[in-house]
Design a protein around this nucleic acid. Structure first.
Length: 610
DNA sequence: CTTAGGG
DNA sequence: CCCTAAG
């Protein structure tokens, strides 16, 4: 099955029309419409992915494809009962999850974002056996003409591949199948074990952030980071999204997600996909993506004698295990993959070179010695991305490669989908002070890939350098490593992991608010959470907000770690107090509230201590 | 950068 | 928690 479309990649220099800002509410509405469209698309694409299962073909580990600019190979493992996909009844189908193993990505090299994910599917049970595979070329882009009509999909190709589209995929059909909107939560992974320490106040929100990139990065007051963050995200992309929406609105598609998070993928990649010519020391001229671990298969370019020109269009990447509910949207899938990739990258990677499927480990070999020459068919050349050496352990990368998305109906909303769940087995970022405990997990999971590779490496390459970080391929040309790869880490910031307030924290918060009032969060922060980098004043404010709410609802309706009623009482009291004394006593940090002082006294008596 | 609120 | 409009 082949779905193909293109996304006119808006060039960086694109001249956006000035869209006057309308009141938030208005603008939002527009966006929402596009969101629907996106869901629609996502739903549709989701079906395609599903279809991977039913398609068949042989797989080629080191495939080369010069046409696909953007591709990912995904091995899917069905974790559930089979489905009768040909029934095309996507509506109300049992939910189940899939584990995808993403092996390679390729990126555009011409400014056109044409993604062509290749799905390799296999039945879990028949592990290791011949994989079935279908080429699912799902577009994540859009027709240049803004049309997303049926012609956008090449159904013929699909048919040629013997793949059947579920009816819900038919373009004119009711693509917006409920399966994408009304989820059931059967499939959700309930992994909570590890958060006990932190407690959780939200059982139904089995959504934990995949991992966290150091709260320190954007901890309380970190101008620099924030600035970077901002420049990297919002403006540019929002504008982009807006304009996209503007131009494609009629296509019924939301080009880019409204939120930064949602498009960080593009954000990062697209930008870096601005190709540049670089000169390598040994006079090799290379066309490289200035940023990315992008790219894909190799193709031969016009060559000069003695030199080898390559165009890497895709990299095989270490296996990434991804598990998502069937009902997850493609959008969420993308994000999940993005997260996984980000994590991978943040952990440092190295490039592997494959010639005829064999890994060339001796970095000192010359290209020709390795069989890489202009004479050779460069399609035999391949590259891989592997987990970086211990060189740059990724302390903050705590998640294990297995990512799962929430299936909780409420969570599947656009937003929740944005944040991947955090495997509870994962150490909490807080405990990440010492990288050790986490890194392990990470690497263990990634290693399998290398084993897999092992299959194609006979040469008892005893060369210790084999494990050297990056570099040494003579023709630096091949070192298509983003200049800013390491530090960059994760500006592709994600939603911070949820960190329920402990009773202790709540107590501290209440105390502080009692004294300072509800309009001085910065002070509250300073006073009671000075050292809690992960608690920003906004967090505190938000927490207070929820506390007030919590305190005003029946205990039965509360969730998560219960907050002592006594504290809640204080919350209401303080709330009431400060509601009336707004502004008045706010200046100084002193006793502007005898009532509250009394409350505190009671608190102590009640045994609630810090 | 902070606040204040909606999402 | 995130995002933003306002200060």
């Amino acid at each position: 099955m082949v779905f193909k479309r293109k996304l006119e990649c808006v060039s960086v220099g694109f001249d956006y029309p000035n869209i006057p800002k309308a009141p938030r509410s208005c603008r939002r509405k527009v966006v929402n419409k596009r969101t629907d469209a996106m869901d629609l698309l996502a739903s549709l694409a989701g079906k395609l992915l599903e279809e991977c299962e039913s398609s068949s073909a042989s797989s080629n580990a080191f495939e080369v494809n010069t046409h696909e600019n953007c591709r990912k190979e995904i091995k899917q493992e069905d974790h559930l009962k089979s489905e009768s996909s040909d029934q095309g009844n996507s509506v109300s189908r049992p939910t189940y999850e899939k584990t995808c193993v993403v092996n390679s990505f390729s990126f555009p090299d011409d400014g056109i974002l044409e993604r062509t994910p290749v799905c390799e599917t296999k039945n879990v049970k028949s592990e290791g056996v011949t994989e079935e595979r279908g080429d699912v070329i799902v577009n994540t882009g859009f027709e240049q003409d803004g049309g997303l009509g049926a012609d956008a999909f090449n159904l013929e190709d699909a048919t040629a591949l013997g793949v059947q589209f579920p009816k819900s995929v038919c373009v004119d059909g009711d693509v917006k199948s409920p399966s994408c909107l009304n989820k059931t939560s059967n499939g959700s992974l309930d992994r909570q074990g590890n958060h006990t320490k932190l407690g959780r106040d939200d059982d139904d929100e089995k959504l934990y952030s995949y991992h966290k990139f150091s709260s320190k990065f954007k901890s309380y007051r970190s101008p620099t980071i924030r600035r970077i963050r901002k420049s990297l995200s919002s403006k540019y992309w929002k504008q982009m999204a807006k304009d996209f929406g503007h131009y494609r609105a009629d296509a019924g598609v939301k080009a880019l997600y409204r939120k930064r998070k949602s498009c960080y993928g593009y954000n990062a990649w697209q930008r870096e996909t601005i190709y540049k010519r670089r000169r390598s020391p040994d006079r090799s001229s290379v066309v490289t993506s200035d940023g990315g671990l992008s790219s894909g298969s190799v193709s031969k370019l016009p060559e000069k004698r003695d030199s080898v020109k390559l165009s890497i269009k895709s990299f095989r990447i270490p296996e990434l295990f991804i598990e998502v509910p069937e009902t997850a949207t493609v959008g969420s899938l993308k994000r999940t993959v993005m997260e996984a990739v980000s994590v991978l990258l943040s952990g440092g990677i190295r490039v592997g070179v494959l010639v005829h499927g064999k890994k060339v480990r001796d970095d000192k070999k010359t290209l020709s010695q390795s069989g890489i020459s202009s004479e050779e068919n460069l399609t035999n050349l391949g590259f891989t991305l592997e987990p970086g050496p211990s060189k740059a352990p990724v302390p903050l990368c705590s998640q294990d490669p297995l990512v799962s998305l929430p299936i909780d109906p409420t969570n599947l909303s656009e937003r929740s989908a944005v944040s991947p769940t955090l495997d509870t087995e994962t150490p909490h970022p807080d405990d990440v002070a010492n990288p050790g405990n986490i890194v392990d997990n990470n690497h263990l999971e990634l290693i399998p890939y290398q084993k897999e590779i092992t299959v194609d490496e006979e040469e008892p390459s005893t060369d210790p350098k084999a494990l050297v970080p990056l570099p040494a391929l003579e023709a630096e040309a091949l070192a298509i490593v983003p200049l800013n790869q390491k530090p960059k880490r994760t500006e592709l910031a994600q939603r911070r992991t949820r960190r329920p307030f402990s009773v202790t924290e709540v107590e501290a918060l209440v105390q502080a608010v009692e004294e300072l009032g509800t309009g001085r969060w910065r002070d509250v922060k300073l006073r009671a959470f000075e050292d809690a980098d992960h608690r920003t004043y906004v967090d505190l404010k938000d927490k207070w907000k929820t506390l007030v709410h919590t305190a005003s609802i029946s205990p039965q309706q509360r969730r998560g770690e219960p907050v002592p009623q006594e504290l809640l009482d204080r919350v209401l009291r303080a709330y009431g107090y400060w509601s009336q004394h707004q502004g008045k006593h706010q200046g100084r940090g002193g006793g502007a509230h005898k009532d509250l002082d009394m409350n505190r006294g009671r608190a102590v008596e009640a045994g609630v201590s810090v």
